[in-house]
Design a protein around this nucleic acid. Structure first.
Lengths: 206, 206
DNA sequence: GCACAATAGTTCCGCTTTGTCACAAACCTC
DNA sequence: GAGGTTTGTGACAAAGCGGAACTATTGTGC
């Protein structure tokens, strides 16, 4: 059981999680591998194979129970509990992230929001107020935070990344276009919609 | 030359593009496959192999010229020109997207921003003003837009997707957590940071 | 109760992609 | 010219994935 999943399997399970979460919100209580396939463009046989590696979650002739499968996948990914994350940057993007229900839906709690601009420090955001970035290290320690989200302009991103690393954060989600230099034990996920878009465009053109 | 790249190769080329764009901004004019590897976690041999499929862009013992390689990859991905996209939703997320330099950097022009709230229609945003969503179809036709970005709450996302499809858009970037039903000839890219985060967390936990 | 349709679970095989090692060729510096 | 560096490239192993085929189970309609 201690075996780590391969990257591919874990990525696919995450996609299933996304689909199931939405399916549940739409009031579905059952779903077939074919339906998941339609939404994810992942082969239906592959989906059944993935799931059957961990147990027999479905009913033949019927499909999968949405709630049950959600619970099983969360168990496999070991992401059932609550996770605290820190958000740096309370500008438009930071506000958009803080006010989105998307994290809470998956048990992720934005435990604190930081900025360095005195103008915005103290303003209410999400369920708390914007804090001075100098408090980052203390808060990370207090709340056992291992994930930081960077929502600041590119020019300030490296500085924020350094502060996060210094505070002990191990996973960074970078919403600026900057490349970040971090120690090898820190994971960086950089989101770049423009590059994804170019990629999508390539496959659109005949 | 008419051969389509495989998904994997195109995805990797996009990553290289991202790294090169940033490397250029940082003032580098040369870069080695090993450096690209450090930033992308893609095997250096793989990178050289990917590039050498299309020509000999590097200099042995030296590395790649950043500007030259940028141009070559853009040529391969056929994304040299300007592309017009439509953004739907002028809330916080829409404003964040509209004010980000990230698209312009890659030749992508946010040609129009739409919303349905009369309160925000007419407000300046980016280089234009927010337009009524009823104008979507006309604008898509006028400006030859094939990409739409959805930045509205999940509850309204399907409605917006329908309008985009009706207007003739073929690629949709969905920043809501909703699953979208679209015809098979329309590509949907749904961004879900929370699910990505769970995925990252899985690999962080020993 | 029985036939039938739907769907999960499972196996096998082959293709494609990726990773690794190895090494020659070209280039820069001294 | 020597030596170190980096690309370009070949051969091969390993992994991942897709498809087809089949069985098993469940629900439905007669």
């Amino acid at each position: 059981m201690g075996d780590r999943l391969t990257v591919g399997v874990a990525a696919r399970l995450s996609r299933y999680l996304q689909v199931l979460t939405q399916a549940k919100k739409m009031g579905k209580d059952r779903i077939s591998s074919q339906e998941i396939s339609d939404y994810t463009n992942i082969n239906a046989t592959q989906i059944r194979r993935d799931l059957s590696t961990f147990g027999k979650f479905g009913k033949r002739g019927v499909g999968y129970n949405v709630d049950g499968l959600l619970a099983e996948i969360r168990k496999i990914l070991r992401t059932q509990g609550q996770h605290n994350i820190a958000l740096i940057g309370a500008g438009r993007l930071g506000q958009a992230i803080a006010s989105s229900p998307i994290f809470a839906e998956h048990g992720i709690n934005i435990a604190a929001v930081f900025d360095r601009d005195p103008e915005v420090i103290g303003r209410p955001i999400g369920t708390g107020v914007v804090q001075d970035v100098s408090r980052l290290k203390d808060v990370v320690r207090e709340k056992n935070i291992i994930v930081g989200v960077i929502a600041v302009p590119a020019a300030a991103a490296q500085e924020v990344a350094d502060a996060l690393v210094d505070a002990g954060v191990k996973i960074i989600f970078n919403y600026s276009e900057a490349l970040l230099d971090v120690p090898p034990d820190v994971q960086v996920h950089t989101s770049n919609p423009a590059v994804e878009l170019l990629h999508a465009l390539y496959f659109h053109l005949a």
